[in-house]
C-alpha cells in the first residue's frame, strides 16, 4: 500500500525531506510519491510524515484512496462554510 499526492498539492516542499523512504520527488505539475518506495512510514514513524506536515486538506490520499486530511481537519474551516464562501465569491 502507498500514499498518493494529487493535483491540489501546492508544491511547498514540506514533505519531501521528511520521507524516510525517499519516495517523494518534485515533479510537474505537482510532487509525486513513488508507490514502490512508499511504506506509509510503517516501522519508521507513528504517523505518515508527508500527511503530518502537508498543509492542504485532501492533497494526500492513503492506500484506499481516502484523504488523510479531510476537509476542515487542518484549517478548522467547516466544509459547508467553505462551500458557501466559494459560491458567494463566484456569484460576484
Amino acid at each position: 500500500m502507498a500514499y498518493r499526492i494529487i493535483e491540489t498539492c501546492v508544491n511547498c516542499w514540506a514533505c519531501e525531506p521528511l520521507c524516510p523512504s525517499n519516495a517523494i520527488q518534485a515533479a510537474t505539475p505537482h510532487f509525486v510519491i513513488d508507490a514502490r518506495a512508499c511504506t506509509e512510514c510503517d516501522g519508521a514513524f507513528a504517523d505518515a510524515q508527508c500527511a503530518s506536515i502537508c498543509p492542504v486538506e485532501g492533497a494526500i490520499l492513503d492506500g484506499a484512496g481516502v484523504a488523510v486530511n479531510p476537509p476542515g481537519s487542518l484549517t478548522g474551516i467547516p466544509p459547508e462554510r467553505m462551500a458557501q464562501a466559494i459560491a458567494e465569491i463566484r456569484a460576484r
Binding site: V10, C12, W13, A14, I53, P55, V56, L74, T75, G76
Partner: peptide, 16 residues
C-alpha cells in the same frame, strides 16, 4: 522557503 511547520489562521497555504 515554501515549506511551513505550522498553520496560522490568517494564512492560506495556496500562496500563488
Amino acid at each position: 522557503a515554501p515549506a511551513c511547520n505550522i498553520q496560522c489562521h490568517y494564512c492560506n497555504r495556496k500562496y500563488d
